[in-house]
Structures are given as structure tokens and as C-alpha cells.
Amino acid sequence: MANPAKFFEQIGRRTASGLDEMGYATVLFFEAIYWTLTGWRQRQPVRIAATFAAMVEIGVAALPIATLLAATIGLMLAIQSLYSLGIFGAEQYAFIGIALSVVREFSPMIMGILIAGRSGSAIAARLATMNINQEIDALQVMGINPNRFLVAPVLIALVVMMPCLAMWANIVSILAAGLYVSAELNQSFGAYLNDTLDVLKVDDVWHGLGKAGLFGIIIALVGVVNGSMVKGGAEGVGRVTTRSVVLSVTLIVVADMIFAYLTTR
């Protein structure tokens, strides 16, 4: 039988380590904001070119896969909505469920999961490799703040691009769902869009975009914290990369639930 003292020791250690990571993430977040706002005064501005490069890498380069996923989600929602509402003979109201669930839930969450897998892992791997190669040490001894140089551009890029991607996913999903629903119900596509725009409020859109921004912060911080904690060589890089994706996705889902609870009831 396992030693109960060891079991509780493990729980204690993991809790302490989790709190340590959360504290570090909080410091990183505020330091990145600090450098973004005051870096230019200290003649160490957050580089616009680096930020745009990160935005292109995180947002623009992800558009093809984001479009494919968004269209698939829209079609899937349309199929399921028509099936479930068909039980009550209420297929003509499918647009309500599709519009609200896409804009408030699916677009930000699916984009969050996509970007956590695509960019969060890349951030963690890049930082971990830089750590192992002493590149972070090199920045520090040169007097270049690593948070300003590495973290702030990525954080800004994610906070800006995640809502953009979620908005793009809204449009693609609703269009894809609209094409399917209007074809199935022999309804005009224009009428479907009209109904969708009627049912959606500006608050619904902001709800989704706000969540997407929050997910952007989660992805950036989890990636950076994991990348900074690397131990060992290539194996360590692989480990923190995987951990970063799993943790980001988990936190996105949990944050989504908390966000929905706090803002929807």
C-alpha cells in the first residue's frame, strides 16, 4: 500500500509548484504590460516589427486551418440543430441556436484550442530551446529585458489576433451553416442571414470576442511559463511543449465555463 505521507507530500509539492507557476505568470503578465506602456521611455520599446511578425505568424498564417475548422463547426452545428429541432418540428428556428452558440461559444473556444496547439506549443518550444541554448541569459547580460523582447510582442499579438480569428470564425461558421440550412429547408440564404443578424446582439459578439482575448492571454502565459521552466535537453523541450498544449486547452475550457457562468446567468 502506498505511503499516505508520501501521497500528501506529493499533493503539497504539486500545489506549491502550481501556485509558483501562477505567481510567475502573473508577474510576466504585468511586466509585459509595464514594458509595453513604458518601454519607450526607457529607450527599450516593444518592437512593432516583432509584434507584427508575431501577429502574422499567429493570426494570418493560421487563416486556412481556422477557416476549415470554422466551416466544419458551422456545418456540424447546422446538421445537429436540424436533427434535434426536427424532433419538435421546429427546424425553422435552427438559426437561433447556431448563431448564439457559434458567436458566444464555439468560435472563441475552437480558435483557442487551435491556437493553443499551433502557436502556444511553438512559443513554449521556442522559449525552451532559447533557455537551453543560454539565449535568455545572453539577453539578460546584454541588458535586454527578455519580457520586453520576447514575451510582450507575443502577448500583444495573441490578444489582438485571437478576437480577429474568432470574428473570422463567426463569419465563416454562420455562412457555412446558412448554406446548409437554407438548402435543407428550401429557404433563401438571404432570409437565413437576415434572421441570424436579427437574433444576434452586439453583446453576444463582444462576449465571444472578450473570451477570445482572454484565451489569448492564457495561451501566451502558459507557453512562456512552460518554456521558461524547461529542464534537460531536447527531451525537456518536448515535455514542456506537450504540457503547454494540455494546460492551455484545459485552462481555456475551464475559463470558458467560468466566463459563461459569470456573464450569462
Binding site: Q134, E135, I144, F149
Partner: peptide
């Protein structure tokens, strides 16, 4: 800014060319 450090394995930034690596402190500071 008044000290320089060369690390054991170089610690050059792999995404930058050699010249960009050397210019980095000048560009940033």
C-alpha cells in the same frame, strides 16, 4: 551596457543571421 559576455555554446539567436546577432545589442540599446 559596459560589459560583454560570450557564452560557452555561443548563445547566438538561431533565427537571426550572424550580422544581426552582432547588431542586436546596438539595435536594442
Amino acid at each position: 551596457r559596459r560589459i560583454g559576455v560570450a557564452f560557452q555554446f555561443g548563445a547566438l539567436f538561431s533565427s537571426l543571421t550572424v550580422a544581426e546577432n552582432v547588431k542586436l545589442p546596438l539595435r536594442e540599446l
